[in-house]
């Protein structure tokens, strides 16, 4: 059997199924940007060191720059373009705009996808490095600013929108808690 350097893959991106032939070297980030045409995910470092390329893959946040497209075969991917539905912006997006959770906007798609993922992780009871006691037997750690900062630390922002981002994430979490 001869080895091929490219592969046929299927990706479900923002609820749309795409069949693509990709160079095996192509990352999920480049496949989303160059093949699918979703340029929301950004290439800030291409080495998993900034978080600007963060997307949700099967509901979990990942850096798409270190994910090979071919290895993502069959994944259900949500990019920033897929966060808002027909009803308009998601609460986290609306909060980013209202509280000015960005300046240049380049890290924003990654911050937003990461925030969605981080909130789900917290809701699932996952501890973080900011959690004083990781024991599963105590009460679930409340999501405070320190928890949000730690959980969002994989998303660098050079403009320094961090405080506004933290406020937006906390507000969104509180709203979700009220509305269920």
């Amino acid at each position: 059997m001869t080895d091929d350097f490219s592969s046929e893959i299927t990706l479900e991106v923002n609820d749309v199924t795409h069949r693509l032939r990709v160079d095996n070297r192509r990352t999920l980030l480049d496949a989303l940007r160059e093949d699918v045409g979703h340029t929301g995910p950004k290439k800030g470092c291409d080495h998993g060191q900034c978080g600007a390329c963060t997307v949700l893959a099967d509901g979990r946040r990942v850096v798409s720059c270190l994910t090979l497209a071919v290895a993502a075969e069959g994944a259900r991917v949500t990019t920033v373009e897929g966060l808002s539905g027909e009803g308009g912006l998601r609460p986290i997006q609306e909060a980013f705009v209202r509280l000015d959770g960005f300046q240049c906007g380049f890290c924003t798609p990654g911050q937003l996808c990461s925030a969605v993922g981080a909130l789900a992780e917290h809701a699932a009871g996952w501890p973080s490095a900011a959690t004083a006691d990781v024991s599963p037997d105590g009460p679930t750690t409340e999501l405070d600013a320190a928890e949000v900062r730690e959980r969002m630390s994989g998303n660098l922002c050079r403009c320094g929108a961090y405080p506004s981002i933290v406020r937006a994430v906390l507000e969104t979490a509180a709203r979700a808690a009220v509305t269920g």
């Binding site: 998993g48 990461s114 969002m152 994989g154």
Partner: peptide
């Protein structure tokens, strides 16, 4: 939990 980032740990 002290390693890398939430994305990378996933």
């Amino acid at each position: 939990l002290a390693g890398a980032s939430g994305q990378l740990r996933n």
